[in-house]
């Protein structure tokens, strides 16, 4: 069953990646990156257990925190970003 979960997560990663490539709006990309980060955490937990990676839980926990900070930084950036730098 763990193998099935890993395969499902790999397909999920691929689909999320396609959404990050397609856009179309910038918010879709932010959503895709955040979603990719969450899936990475899950992948670390499931794959780490199946393949016996060393101290994988620490890394998964760290990734969950880093993903949160990164997405918040992006949102904060857009809040204060002025439209003057846009392409006319």
């Amino acid at each position: 069953m763990i193998a099935a979960a890993i395969v499902a997560l790999l397909i999920t990663l691929a689909l999320t990646l396609i959404r990050a490539f397609m856009g179309p709006s910038i918010y879709d990309r932010i959503l895709a990156v955040n979603s990719f980060g969450t899936k990475t955490v899950l992948f670390i937990v499931v794959g780490g257990h199946a393949l016996g990676w060393f101290s994988y839980v620490d890394i998964a926990l760290m990734y969950a925190l880093v993903n949160f900070i990164g997405t918040l930084a992006v949102m904060r950036f857009f809040e204060q970003y002025s439209p003057h730098g846009e392409r006319s």
């Binding site: 069953m1 099935a4 499902a8 997560l9 999920t12 918010y27 879709d28």
Partner: peptide
């Protein structure tokens, strides 16, 4: 096993929705 299968299915469904739904809020 049931938890893993259900979780994998849910995550996969979410990704399909993320790819296929029409606008940002539904995605």
């Amino acid at each position: 096993d049931v938890c893993l299968l259900l979780g994998g299915f849910l995550v996969l469904t979410g990704a399909v929705g993320l790819l296929r739904l029409p606008d940002f809020f539904t995605r």
